[in-house]
């Protein structure tokens, strides 16, 4: 483990920036925390987490895939990909770091999504341990330790020091390039902070959230629950919950008619939308009840059934904070737990 005085954090940022693009969570002009490319003087936000999740770095909301140009009777096919430079994302929370692992399970299995893979390979994730979780946080439900985040490298801000620890080869490489700024440190120095954070995590309102029984075996029971209409009754069918979610991964592929060709792009899609998975015969889920059920069944049942029990949620709490009608995965899980436990 390494450390440097927090007062030198700008020097650290500058040193990283000298090698590659650096993104940090900062307050933008409107006062919201979001990732922006670091420039001299830009400071870390005091907010616990960014409003928008970090998934854009690897899975952007819109992305051009390929272009077709018509030349007489010939079609020219142009790969729209641009060269990806190396970049560092600093200050990712433990929940969001885990979301990358979940996205990997979708995009890096056969057939590999080369657009995603390209970004993932060029990105180095530096996480930052939490010290003041919000009441909406329930990462511990998914075995995530907010005091010991994953990532290529992890860091802690405790007292006057910033502690850093490499966890992967990429992390090692980053830290060794910064070696002249860093001093050696002992793991014991962050132990007190970690304990304090874990104590708070124990006291969070959803610390005891129990997802036992949400698995493939109970698929039909949960799918057929009589509770879905009531739960989804007030749902607006907006895409807020899916778009703020770091693990929602569905996308649509669309063609943009340029007048003399086609630009094929993909964009985030939402199971809450009426034209989600629209096919020639029409839509497979015609009511909001069915669409609503899809989102929660996917996260709590289908995903774990296909991924050795891993849920499609990391407990970041964004959907809890942002749903216009305050309906969310926790309320759904609590309402349905009686069916399976």
């Amino acid at each position: 483990m390494k450390k440097l005085p927090v007062s030198k954090i700008q020097e650290l940022f500058a040193a990283i920036r000298a090698q590659q693009t650096l993104y940090i969570p900062t307050d933008d002009a409107s006062g919201q925390a979001r990732y922006l490319p670091w420039q001299e003087g830009m400071e870390l936000t005091h907010a616990l987490n960014t409003v928008r999740s970090a998934k854009d770095f690897f899975f952007p909301q819109t992305e051009n895939l390929v272009e077709f140009k018509l030349k007489g009777k010939e079609i020219e096919i142009i790969d729209s990909r641009t060269e990806q430079d190396d970049f560092v994302i600093f200050g990712v929370r433990a929940c969001d770091a885990r979301s990358f692992t979940i996205l990997d399970k979708v995009f890096l299995i056969d057939p590999i999504d080369t657009y995603y893979k390209n970004r993932r390979e060029h990105g180095t994730v530096v996480t930052l341990a939490c010290t003041q979780p919000e009441e909406t946080c329930f990462c511990t439900t998914f075995g995530i330790d907010p005091a010991d985040p994953e990532g290529d490298a992890a860091c802690w801000i405790a007292g006057d020091s910033l502690y850093l620890k490499a966890r992967t080869e990429k992390g090692e490489k980053l830290l060794s390039a910064l070696d002249n700024l860093l001093a050696d440190a002992d793991e014991g120095e962050i132990a007190a902070q970690q304990k304090a954070t874990r104590d708070i995590a124990q006291k969070l309102p959803f610390a005891k959230l129990n997802l036992a029984g949400f698995n493939g075996e109970n698929l039909n029971k949960l799918f057929d629950s009589k509770k879905w209409p009531e739960l989804s009754e007030a749902c607006l069918g907006c895409g807020t919950c899916t778009f703020v979610c770091p693990t929602c991964q569905c996308y649509d592929i669309r063609d943009f008619d340029t007048g003399h060709g086609v630009k094929r792009f993909r964009c985030w899609d939402s199971c809450m939308y009426s034209d989600f998975t629209l096919m020639a015969h029409g839509n497979s889920r015609n009511s909001q009840v069915e669409r609503f059920r899809q989102r929660f069944m996917h996260k709590l049942v289908y995903f774990p059934a296909n991924n050795e029990g891993e849920y499609g949620c990391v407990g970041c709490g964004r959907c809890l904070a942002k749903c216009p009608i305050s309906m969310n995965i926790v309320k759904v899980a609590k309402a349905l737990e009686g069916e399976v436990q």
């Binding site: 933008d28 979001r34 928008r52 069918g237 895409g239």
Partner: peptide, 27 residues
């Protein structure tokens, strides 16, 4: 600047009592 943050979640439209078209042109 403000609108650049939009994620096109459509919450503003779907909650709006004046947006009550049976099928929005954007859908």
């Amino acid at each position: 600047g403000e609108l650049s943050r939009c994620i096109r979640c459509n919450a503003c439209r779907n909650v709006c009592p004046a947006c009550s078209c049976e099928k929005c042109v954007f859908d």
